[in-house]
Design a protein around this nucleic acid. Structure first.
Lengths: 169, 169
DNA sequence: TTAGCTGCAAAACGTTTGCTTCCCG
DNA sequence: CGGGAAGCAAACGTTTTGCAGCTAA
């Protein structure tokens, strides 16, 4: 992790459509057709889709999946440490593969877009704070909520989510 | 906010049982019996109770409240900026008064206990990162998940919450 | 062969809401 | 008095689950 605070959203995309499947096999998971399908959708995602979005993408490739299986699978993969669950508000959990390094999120409160960034300085600070409090850091998350800075003109209005602060995949 | 990373959980407790009610009146809210009751429970809380816990505490003082009112009230107070909602995992929202300064949370993953701390250095860093990404920081949250450091002997086992990573108020 | 996965529909969960009655201001 | 608040129960949207049948290993 570098000191530079760099964005890498659709930038360095996921080149390998079998990344996740490989991870599943590594952890000894039985690979069924639908798991392979969901794994592929996850491998190709460069965003933070929720279950419904994953289901939609999976259906587009093969209609023989049910949303219950998507739920069961993301849960399984989360338990196996392959996926990370996020709650960015909006009431639904959103997922992301854990295999592209630890990073943080900046949520654009106007558009709901999530920007990823990493920051070594912050990493160190978190570690230091935990130590000072007498803890060994196991995990941490930093979420910034911001508005695009001045330069731009006005920004388009936003639709209100059911409740909470949310966005949409 | 000072540079020192200091804990202040049950430490500087809430001395004034009418703090929240006063804030409500300041913002022009109509004060009913149940709002006063809920405000009092909130004023006395030194933790991060969820709605059910608030309801339980309120009931103990006066049985003439319904959980629907608790829900409506926390939502109202959140909109008014008097309360802050947190999602520490566990599937239910947890609340905390906003009137004791911006701070962060360290969640002890063994016990589920939440420790509050503030850190000016981190505050500045968050601001800087947002600026670097071209955003004006509107809000941010930092959550550390840790395990009590070595010195202690073994730590007691944990009960598993329904799902997610959660804890309990 | 069989442990374990899938689909379906129903249940569970936290939370919101429609409606009527009640009360604060 | 009038507008907003409370209580109840029903509705909601997301997620989990029981069960019967199917499938990877």
């Amino acid at each position: 992790m570098d000191t530079r605070t760099d964005t890498h959203q659709p930038a360095d995309a996921k080149p390998d459509p079998m990344r996740i499947e490989r991870l599943c096999i590594e952890r000894g998971l039985k690979m069924t057709g639908q798991r392979r399908l969901i794994a592929r959708v996850l491998s190709e995602a460069v965003d933070h889709p929720d279950v419904e979005e994953l289901y939609r993408r999976a259906l587009a490739l093969d209609s023989r999946v049910s949303i219950a299986t998507v739920y069961r699978t993301v849960r399984l993969l989360e338990e196996k440490g392959i996926l990370e669950r996020h709650d960015f508000g909006g009431g639904r959990a959103r997922y992301e593969a854990t295999d592209h390094g630890h990073h943080y999120h900046l949520i654009d409160i106007e558009t709901g877009k999530v920007i990823e960034f990493s920051d070594a300085q912050h990493e160190a600070l978190a570690e230091a704070i935990a130590a000072r409090l007498g803890f060994r850091l196991v995990g941490h998350r930093l979420e910034l909520f911001g508005r695009r800075a001045a330069p731009e003109a006005a920004t388009p209005p936003r639709r209100a989510p059911k409740r909470r602060s949310g966005e949409g995949a």
